[in-house]
Computed example of a mutant assay.
Amino acid sequence: MSAPGSAEWWTDLAGERPKLSRDLIAEAALRVLDGEGLDALTMRRVAAELDTAAAALYRHVENRDALLVLVVEKVLGEVDPAVPPGGWRERAEWFARGFRAALTRHPAIAPLLVSVPTLGPNALKAFEGGLRVAAEAGFPDELAVASCQAIAFVVRGFAVLQAGDIDPLVVAAGSLGGVAPGALPKVEAFSADAQPTQADELFEFVLASVLDGLAARFLAVTGREPG
Rank of each mutant, 00 (worst) to 15 (best):
A173L: 07
D167Q: 10
V114L: 13
F158H: 10
L113V: 02
A47Y: 12
V83W: 09
E225P: 01
T222Q: 09
A3F: 15
R156L: 13
F203M: 00
L184F: 14
G164D: 13
A126W: 03
A146H: 11
A28Q: 10
D200A: 08
T222K: 06
H60K: 05
K186V: 15
L13K: 14
K125M: 15
S115A: 09
R59P: 11
L219Y: 13
G164E: 15
L113W: 06
E188S: 04
R217K: 09
G138M: 09
V206E: 05
Q149M: 13
A135F: 14
V71T: 08
L24W: 14
E8M: 05
A48H: 13
P185F: 13
A135L: 07
A152H: 12
V179T: 13
E62Q: 10
A26S: 09
T222S: 03
H60C: 02
R97S: 03
R224E: 15
A82G: 04
V46N: 06
A7T: 15
V83Y: 12
A134Q: 08
E128M: 00
L119R: 08
F95E: 05
E62I: 11
V210E: 08
A82Q: 10
I166K: 10
G174M: 03
E73Y: 01
R22N: 10
P111S: 01
I151F: 04
F203N: 00
R44N: 12
D212R: 01
D12W: 12
A183P: 01
A101C: 07
V116K: 00
V114H: 11
L202T: 06
H60R: 07
A28S: 07
A199Q: 05
V72S: 00
P185M: 12
F95T: 06
A55T: 15
T52E: 08
G174Y: 11
E128F: 05
V154Q: 04
A216M: 14
S191R: 02
I151Q: 01
E128P: 01
L50C: 02
A144R: 02
S209E: 13
E188H: 05
P4F: 09
F218M: 08
F95C: 06
S115G: 05
H60N: 07
S175E: 15
A215G: 11
V160D: 02
L68D: 11
G227L: 14
G120F: 03
A192E: 14
S115N: 06
R217V: 15
R91G: 00
I151E: 06
D165Y: 01
G130E: 07
F218E: 03
G177T: 11
L161P: 07
V170F: 07
V71N: 02
R156G: 11
P107C: 01
V72M: 06
F190V: 13
P18K: 05
V79L: 07
E225Y: 06
S209Y: 12
D51H: 01
L103M: 11
F127G: 04
R97P: 08
